[in-house]
Design a protein around this nucleic acid. Structure first.
Lengths: 217, 217, 217, 217
DNA sequence: AATGAATGAGGCTTCATTCAT
DNA sequence: GATGAATGAAGCCTCATTCAT
């Protein structure tokens, strides 16, 4: 009984320490960047001893990986949870997209600094992180492609290389987020921004009768 | 004069050394990444002494900066030199875009590894590099926007927030290049790829009579 | 509390290490001189790792400074602690001076090598050390002047520029110590030496009826 | 004939270069101190190549040694050239001393910075320089002692350990110069200063009838 | 489990010195 | 003889990691 209780307490304490380290690490990484940060910064901010760090994480890379994984998990989670009920026409498709993007935007806004850190540095840390990001992007691209394929099949999207278009959409999203978290986006409300890129994605910038062009090909 | 001749020869020798260091550094950075590379790797590959490095560059950052500046300069150069003669209709606009992108693609293909390195690590090195990349992207966006604005004025592009659309185009470009140099692009010839994203840019993926939609708004 | 005990032990250990480093540094500096000594000599002699040095001192300068400060503190301490009870005539003044000098001499004898190092190199290390020595000498000069002024007031010392005479006394002292610790002093017992320079200080080398001279002035 | 002329010119040029290096070195040493100065500073200021330095001097130590030797030579020269014609009484002795010191003072004033450098750093450079200074001081002490012994023999100086007193005089001199070149001397005209320390040297600070004391001993 | 003192490998950088021209 | 580019040994210092308490 007692030992059970004791074990519980120990575990709680350990988890608290771990959390303190993760929080401290996030702040330090955000403030100084991954490569400029070092373990002693982190333990100092977390107010634990050097050794304690190594009881919880193998090295700097591992704690960073944990942070990245938490971040990516949340992000993908937010994106996949929005069950778009199969749209049946352009208008529904467009509205669903806008809703999804708005939710994503909210999440990013709430994690602005971490997002910035993530986009700036993760890829550069090592091959495995490159892979992590690649996978995450693929995940987004797949989702986009899935819906696009459905729309094509249902006849309200233009037949196209949905794989390429999906990647393009990811590119647009990535760029917008990058600009946004770096405050270098054209001064625009987020809603207008989303509307504008939705228009672009649905219509492009050209004035064309799409069907005609397609038929001509 | 003898001293004149001497000065010339010395300068040549110095430049050769500098070039050898730059080449070596590029190879090392490509092979190991910026942070994993160190000066002694570079001088070993360049077959010069440690001290020689410091005669030519202040530190690792500076030689990397030089490489990045050379790369960016070439890239922007390639992109701005393609004088698109003002297109007067959609077809011309589209063809001009395709030509421009093809040229850019060729350049990137020729500098595949450096491009990869550049896209993966530059931003992460420090704030100044972040700034460099930001400026380069702005440059590309400006060019895209300039042409888009012209097309809108001339009536063969849809009135839109050309700033946002231009940024989107940069995002698409960046993503495609990223995928391409990492060999993770859908297996497609480069020409088809360019055509496909041009279609996407001009028409979007929706089936819409753009003019109607605009009129409705 | 355990942590309290632990803290105490850690501190003790740290202090021991610090002392070991200080002792080692003193020996190395004495043996090789400040500029010829390097950190790795010191840590080797102290039998600690390189990093340990930097946990305790910022650099070579700082450990030297600590040694110098300890030395100067002791020296000034020794000199100021000898409460010369206000002498009321020449004989008492002379005896008090001799006592003070003898004590100082003993201290220097006990720290012969450190004194040598100190006199030879400290000033040359940097401006701040120059300042340190200047202050120390001023301190000695002030004390000498204070007693001299008292003697003048009390009528058993010749009215004179006590500031200049005090500095002269410091000069004599410094030179004697310098010669002594370098074994280049005329072979003489320390007591005779002190008596001789006291005679010189009180009477000069001339044969004069001081009072007459003063009256003539 | 011609080759003779040629050789002459070469030698002149070499000497000019050598002088340029010595001047540059003096300035650099004065500005930065011996240990902070380096060869490239010196050649840069002398406007010659790195290699040229090594054609003229073995290393930094040697050029410093040359400067020190020039300085010491001049100093000793100035001091020994003043042929004090044998004084026959206190007054003459005193006046001769004052004349000698005044000349010395003028020389030092003219080489203030070099004197400062010399007094601060020379001893610390290495054992040989310590020796050089020791010899120079002995030289001064000998001269002082020689005159003092004469005065004692002639009966107008107090019988004393002339070796110790001579060293004391050197100590006084050294200290005064040190204070002077560091601008920390009591605000006093140089002439008054010399008079004051002469008074001190001849009479001490005590009020005593020297002859009586001596007789009592 | 937590601590933080100790470690030492490894990279950076300087600068006296050489040497080809 | 003069030059200055090249050299590399030598020392500095950081920091991830270990380990005794």
């Amino acid at each position: 009984m007692i030992s059970e209780l004791r074990r519980k307490k120990d575990e709680d304490r350990k988890n608290q320490t771990r959390m303190a380290l993760l929080d401290a690490a996030r702040e330090i990484f955000i403030a100084k960047g991954y490569h400029q940060s070092n373990i002693s910064d982190i333990v100092a901010r977390a107010k634990v001893g050097q050794g304690t760090f190594y009881r919880n994480f193998k090295d700097k890379r591992e704690i960073f990986e944990t942070l990245v994984e938490m971040f990516v998990f949340d992000l993908v989670d937010k994106f996949t949870e929005m069950k778009i009920k199969q749209p049946t026409n352009t208008r529904e498709y467009r509205e669903a997209s806008i809703t999804a993007l708005s939710q994503l935007a909210r999440h990013i806004e709430e994690n602005r600094d971490m997002t910035r850190l993530f986009m700036r540095e993760t890829k550069a840390v090592d091959r495995n992180f490159e892979e992590t990001i690649k996978k995450m992007c693929s995940r987004f691209a797949e989702i986009a492609r899935y819906h696009l394929d459905n729309a094509i099949k249902a006849g309200f999207a233009r037949p196209c290389r949905s794989d390429i278009v999906a990647e393009s959409l990811v590119g647009i999203g990535w760029r917008m987020i990058d600009e946004w978290v770096n405050d270098s986006l054209p001064q625009t409300g987020i809603d207008e921004l989303i509307r504008e890129i939705s228009d672009f994605a649905f219509m492009g910038f050209g004035i064309v009768k799409a069907r005609e062009i397609i038929e001509k090909q």
